[in-house]
Amino acid sequence: MNAATSNLVLSIGAMQLARKIPFEDPQVLTYVRVAYVAVQVIVLGVYYFITAKIKAKNDQTVLKYVEPAGPMSKEPGKLVATTNRDYDLTEMNKAMRGVWMGVAMMVFLHGYLKYTQPLFIQSLMGLKNLYDSKLVAVYILGKPAEGDLKRPFKGAGGLMGAGAEPQTDKAAIEEAEKRIGKKDD
């Protein structure tokens, strides 16, 4: 089951479970708030730890790939030449930005609109996203960067697993380099 499908299944299950939790009880609400904050602190702490490990490892292996164009774009993909270190740091920054956007959304939903169920659901989703993170698998669990963990990481895709993948084959990279050369002339 891909990440998008498992996220959907977890969300639906968590919503059903959240209906049975008595959020009207101030003590229960306090526990849910503490759990949400604790999960976000744990996730951000792990992400900052991984960032430190990436910087300490300083992997300067060159990474070239063709980034896919947008689904509605007529333009071909863009050539990206970077290092494993810079790629991992970029991916980690995206993950941290996602956590902070989720926290901002939760401040609005719970702080302003007074919704309580999303606190519980997002606590579970935060842990699941940490578990699904490819950088956690590489830097914390020590799995080799092969297969699904090979850089550049494949996108999560949609519910049916469809999505544009970065092209790493030699022909696609050479084609992108030729296009860049033609634009420079």
Results as ranks from 00 to 15, higher is better:
Tyr115Ile: 05
Met160Gln: 02
Asp148Tyr: 01
Lys170His: 15
Ile21Asn: 00
Ile140Thr: 02
Arg33Leu: 04
Leu63Asp: 05
Ile54His: 10
Lys64Tyr: 08
Ala18Gln: 00
Thr83Gly: 11
Leu159Gln: 04
Ala35Asp: 01
Gly161His: 01
Phe108Gln: 02
Val39Gly: 01
Ala14Ser: 09
Pro144Cys: 12
Ile50Asn: 09
Thr116Asn: 13
Lys94Leu: 07
Phe49Asn: 09
Leu89Trp: 07
Asp132Pro: 00
Asp184Asn: 13
Thr116Pro: 05
Ile180His: 13
Asp185Trp: 15
Met101Trp: 05
Asp169Gln: 04
Gly102Lys: 03
Glu24Leu: 03
Lys154Arg: 11
Pro68Cys: 11
Asn2Leu: 06
Asp169Ala: 15
Glu91Met: 13
Ile180Glu: 15
Asp185Leu: 14
Glu174Ala: 13
Pro144Leu: 14
Ala18Ser: 03
Tyr139Val: 00
Val41Glu: 12
Lys134Asn: 08
Asp132Ala: 01
Thr83Val: 14
Val66Ala: 11
Val62Lys: 11
Phe120Glu: 01
Tyr65Asp: 05
Ser133His: 00
Arg97Pro: 00
Glu75Ala: 14
Lys178Tyr: 03
Glu175Lys: 06
Ile140Arg: 04
Val32Pro: 00
Ser123Asp: 03
Gly161Tyr: 03
Ala164Lys: 14
Ala14Tyr: 02
Tyr36Leu: 05
Lys150Met: 13
Glu91Ser: 07
Thr83Gln: 13
Ala137Lys: 08
Ser73Ile: 03
Pro71Glu: 01
Val46Arg: 04
Leu127Ala: 07
Tyr115Asp: 06
Ser6Tyr: 13
Pro76Lys: 14
Ala35Asn: 01
Glu146Phe: 10
Tyr48Leu: 15
Val107Trp: 13
Lys128Cys: 07
Ala172Tyr: 11
Val32Met: 00
Tyr139Ala: 03
Ala81Phe: 06
Gly70Phe: 08
Met96Ala: 06
Val62Asn: 07
Val99Trp: 09
Trp100Leu: 12
Lys55Thr: 14
Thr90Ser: 15
Leu149Trp: 06
Ala35Gln: 02
Lys154Asn: 09
Met92Gly: 07
Asp25Pro: 11
Val103Arg: 09
Met101Glu: 04
Leu141Arg: 09
Thr82Phe: 12
Glu146Leu: 15
